[in-house]
């Protein structure tokens, strides 16, 4: 191959490259889309998981909404307080107090505490199990089915099936709410990270039914209501509920609960 052939090749490919480069450079100026500077800054401050936990389609969706004033500056549940404050300083407003929340699975009926009424060998998917007789093989009709729809939904690897029930890793949980939407039994709830006492049961059955189904089910005996010094507990449909805004975490209810359905986190 002669030297001129090499030079031609270099010149032509280089020329094409140069032309395309210039063409794209000009195009990027001509087709420039005006973006609010603050929107880019807000987007940079957000975690970038695009989890949708805020209710907007991805982080860029939230950034646009924050700049338009359609979303509060601390709307990102993943970033929490730190990101909220950064965005507040970009937007020039005060961020309100944010309480760190984590997901909690209101069921403690693991394999040791519940039994299987029959052997289920169908599709391993919680929402499918809901269609089989008696709402799945588990002795309790209200509890965690353990097929892990929440595990698949979690973008942060913060929820796992342990001994037949879903358990949240509270250090990893970012409270995005994906698992709450994924659970067909509506067992998962957001509670403050600081919460001490929780009712680890969702059974609405009468006491004797629950007692038969699970060793640690809430039977609605109301002993906790009487013992609570701040009146944070109510019993409705044979099921105790703790108002976390009132709870001081003293532990009196945990002591008193005969089924140990109220647990310490």
């Amino acid at each position: 191959m002669s030297i001129s052939a090499i030079l031609t090749a270099v010149a032509v490919v280089g020329g094409v490259g140069l032309f395309l480069g210039l063409f794209l450079g000009v195009a990027s100026i001509v087709f420039k889309v005006e973006v609010d500077e603050r929107e880019e800054a807000v987007l940079a401050a957000l975690p970038g998981n695009n989890c949708g936990g805020c209710g907007f389609p991805g982080c860029s969706g939230l950034a646009a909404a924050v700049v338009k004033g359609e979303a509060p500056v601390n709307a990102c549940p993943v970033g929490g307080e730190a990101v909220g404050r950064t965005i507040a300083s970009i937007m020039g407003v005060e961020a309100g107090e944010t309480v760190r929340m984590t997901a909690f699975v209101k069921c403690a009926g693991d394999c040791a505490k519940t039994t299987q009424n029959y052997e289920y060998t169908g599709v391993a998917d919680c929402s499918m199990v809901g269609y089989v007789p008696d709402g799945g093989a588990k002795s309790c009709n209200h509890g965690c089915l353990g097929y892990g729809n929440c595990v698949k939904a979690c973008p942060f690897d913060a929820i796992h099936i342990q001994n037949g029930i879903a358990v949240v890793d509270r250090e990893k949980c970012k409270a995005c709410g994906k698992c709450i939407a994924a659970c067909p039994k509506a067992l998962i709830e957001l509670i403050p990270y600081a919460a001490k006492s929780v009712v680890a049961c969702s059974s609405r059955d009468k006491g004797p039914v629950t007692m038969k189904a699970c060793q640690s089910g809430c039977i609605g005996c109301s002993l906790c209501v009487k013992v609570c010094p701040v009146g944070a507990i109510t019993v409705e449909d044979f099921h105790a509920h703790i108002d976390q805004s009132k709870c001081t975490g003293c532990g009196a209810c945990r002591e008193k609960c005969p089924k140990k359905a109220i647990m310490e986190l």
Binding site: F23, L24, A27, S28, F31, K32, V33
Partner: peptide, 8 residues
Amino acid sequence: FVEMFLKK
């Protein structure tokens, strides 16, 4: 280029 054009 197509991406820039469509975006605009």
